[in-house]
Design a protein around this nucleic acid. Sequence first.
DNA 1: TGTGATGTTGAATG
DNA 2: GCATTCAACATCAC
Length: 262
Amino acid sequence: MPELPEVFTFQKYFDDHALGKKVKACHFHRPKILKEISPESFTAKIKDLSFGSSYRRGKYLFPKLEDGHHILIHFGMTGYLKYYSNPEDAPKYERMVFEFKDGNYLGFEDMRLFGQIRYIPDLEEYLSSIGIGEDALLISEADFAEQWLKASGNIKAFLMNQKIVAGLGNLYVDEICFQTKIDPRSMLKNIPKKKIAEVHKKMKTILEYAVDILPNYTDYPENWFWEWRKDGSLAPDGKTTISKSKVAGRTTYYFEGWQKRY
DNA sequence: TGTGATGTTGAATG
DNA sequence: GCATTCAACATCAC
């Protein structure tokens, strides 16, 4: 689930429920999701501190502690946050939980355990160590074009690469290719330069729209990927049947022919 | 019951 | 050296 719009929503949820609250304890039901530090050390570092703000880059969420250090919450494939007051309301696949001084809890649920939590002493250093690119919602057209012109390979791999643009995942990349009518297998070097601005614009439009309406799943527009991205569906021309194959290592849906292959 | 899944990393392959 | 593919991670839904 978590691509940029979902993590954007998690950030709002985190801010609404956790900012200003003092941490009483952290409980790790599955310590595996905590990287490079023991649960005891992690807890000792943030105990009695409160969260002052949070920062998001792509799919990475960095709550900031009042002492200036950060933690990282990455949601993997199935990560989710849940705030509750009664321990009985803990989600089924909760892997760790912040217990606040005021008696409330913020649980991190992650069925498949691909998510991760880290202690980040220096945010800038961490960001550069993983080489993460600019946020997909914020990147300028000029910067996007610069990345495009120095990259190689196909457009799907390009848009999926978090070091180039941070935040897009498999579904949103398919949606961008669909809306720009570009076959995801198209090699960047063959796509006309004038398409760069269009891809950048569509990327932003799609993400901004998703961010706006995500809390209301029922409001999703009909033509979005959850409508067309499935076996047997037809392109807007009513004739082209959907194709499914692996592109850049991920299951990819596209309308061969209707989406132009450069 | 076998298959595949919205992510990331690193190794293997070409 | 580069791009691409694959396996691994752990679990569950279909």
